[in-house]
């Protein structure tokens, strides 16, 4: 095996998705090639850094209101053009005069401004009905998240993990489901996303312990490195003992041990 063969397969190697024979070839090559080992470490680190970037949140309610207005306008326009085409087949054609076009444009502008104001975020209200509706909406979103996490398709489960980060106050069922996904999901990207999603709960001791306990069971070094970062971020200097243990664990991938060692230096050991 040549060094140049490793590049395109590096992510699959890190994700643990290569067939066993190919995996063995790459491991044998890495055992004797320091440059490739460094390359693997650097790629793993970069991959996890990319994943740690915050997910931008769209203003969904405003966007949906805008789209609904556009969709309704499109549907009305379609219906109108059908009526016009029916009537023009019976009557002499009505030609648009410049003054009519100007008036039409002005009317559309007024409607547009009115619509813009209409779709502004609502002023906070204390109406109990609205509070109840919000609560129901929150429960529905939570149910959707939990249901997506159970889907067969990895992209649906990935959506579930991403949806969880958009819940304002996710319940313990969602947090437990995320931990469960991290432990058992067969897809590396879904597990990686669940580490990112769990970051918002890293102040909870149960979540921190759950991640620490799940680390040795992980097969993918990419996920393990993301978990090391999580532990470092969550526990800070208190992570020393866990990082020390990981750095010395010879069963772990070399890139994971290197990340734990770097973490130890960061927390000042």
């Amino acid at each position: 095996m040549q060094c140049s063969d490793l590049g395109p397969e590096m992510l699959e190697y890190l994700a643990g998705t290569l067939p066993d024979d190919r995996l063995a070839e790459i491991r044998a090559h890495l055992a004797q090639c320091q440059a490739c080992r460094d390359d693997v470490d650097a790629t793993a680190e970069l991959w996890n850094e990319l994943g740690a970037a915050p997910t931008p949140r769209p203003e969904s309610a405003r966007m949906r209101a805008r789209f609904d207005a556009a969709l309704q306008g499109y549907i009305d326009g379609q219906a109108e053009s059908r009526v016009v085409s029916m009537t023009t087949s019976r009557r002499p054609s009505l030609r648009w005069q410049p003054w009519m076009q100007l008036s039409g444009a002005a009317a559309l502008l007024v409607i547009g401004v009115g619509l813009g104001r209409f779709v502004q975020p609502a002023v906070p209200q204390t109406n109990p009905d609205i509070a109840l509706l919000r609560e129901e909406l929150r429960d529905t979103r939570q149910m959707v998240t939990l249901s997506l996490l159970q889907q067969q398709s990895a992209s649906e489960r990935l959506k579930g993990v991403n949806t969880s980060s958009q819940l304002e106050r996710p319940g313990t069922e969602v947090v437990s489901a995320l931990l469960d996904t991290l432990r058992h999901d067969p897809n590396v990207n879904v597990r990686l996303a669940s580490v990112d999603a769990l970051r918002r709960f890293n102040a909870r001791e149960g979540v921190r312990n759950g991640v620490v306990e799940a680390l040795p069971q992980q097969e993918s070094p990419l996920v393990q490195i993301a978990m090391v970062d999580f532990i470092l971020e969550a526990a800070g200097p208190d992570a020393r003992s866990v990082l020390q243990r990981l750095a010395e664990d010879m069963m772990l991938n070399q890139a994971v041990r290197a990340r734990a060692e770097r973490g130890l230096k960061q927390v000042g050991l």
């Binding site: 931008p56 769209p58 949906r64 789209f67 609904d68 991403n162 949806t163 958009q166």
Partner: peptide
Amino acid sequence: GVLFERHHRPLF
């Protein structure tokens, strides 16, 4: 509208 609800976030 349903497709918008499902896909506007990843597209954004």
